[in-house]
Design a protein around this nucleic acid. Sequence first.
DNA 1: TCTGGGGTCCTAGGACCC
DNA 2: TCTGGGGTCCTAGGACCC
Length: 391
Amino acid sequence: MHVAENRGLVVERERAPVSGVVTRGAATMLGMDAAAAPWVLHVDLDQFIAAVEVLRRPELAGRPVIVGGRGDPTERAVVATASYEAREYGATSGMPLRLAARKVPGAVLLPVDAAAYNEASDGVMATLRRLEVVVEVLGWDEAFLGVETADPEAFARHVQAAVLQATDLHCSVGIGDNKIRAKIATGFGKPRGVFRLTRANWLAVMGDRPTIDLWGVGSKVSKRLAALDITTVHELAAVSQETLVGEFGPRMGLWYGQLGKGIGSTTVDDTPWVARGHSRETTYQQNLTRRDQVLEAVRLLAEQAFQDTVAEGRPVTRVTLKVRYAPFFTQSKARKLPAPTSEREAVVAAALALVERLDPGREIRLLGVRAEMQMPEDGDPAERTPIRGRL
DNA sequence: TCTGGGGTCCTAGGACCC
DNA sequence: TCTGGGGTCCTAGGACCC
């Protein structure tokens, strides 16, 4: 596989070589001496969404701020971010807004304002790029940096100061010898701190922790691991590859084994990200019960999803209809289009056709339509785009 | 307590072909 | 009549992340 030249920075190859990576050294900001070595830094803004809200309403500083949905705790919605003050009372991301509002006395509830966070995020990422390091954006409030320095802690402090000066936002920085360790290190640095996690201290820091603390291990996988008598990171690191492959398959089994040892990619790649698709989904405040309601809702979502693909200028190849029945049971139905199309009506028709596969007897609380687009590499393997997400 | 919205990637199994 | 083994494509669904 070919990755665009002059795009990545390989820090170290601990065991398995990273597949087909072309590298260059990143510009060095600090510690520019003979001992300079490559590092991965993970930058994560502290309580990003709440912090952005407080910036434009300084009177909210120090108050328990909860951002989610339309800011109305009587609606079906969840918490996007709770400020540290609100977290003291037990409010966390992903919690139903209604519950969070009940837990936190005097909570300030605010609606999600995506445009504001996008703008703040752009400011942060622009600041990071001005440091002349390789910047791989992970989301609104996160990025990996590839940097060569003799003193990664000093560089991390330098990053924090630059971001604070340019945006008034605080961040934490994880330092690692690969992405996995840098990412997990950040959690130990929060808030406003710096933490280093490498092969040298991996097991000392993570060994006794539960596997769910690993990035990429969630509740289901941690339970399946527990059924194999694997509960800690140390135990995961020690278990045989065959055991994991037998349980999780050739790719995931290998992946979880490496994760236990803290082994991961060392390539920071700033190639612009190419979306695979776009989806629109809505949770209805009242469940849908009638077929005409469902058809109208799917049409609207399909048109929105299609519109999102138009901006990319790539034809739609596949349409997926997602449905959440009450009570809380999710299904998806997919259909590959006979040929890639940029016709709005073809995409809408494909989505509407999938409605026929739904269970007509059940109430629907959520519908979503996803439109997948033709990838550049579909025509030319040499133009293959690096995949974002897995480390 | 009662669970949003936007994504990505992986696996199992069926259909079909040779 | 009943049947192998391998490959590819497709759909459904699972799992995870921010």
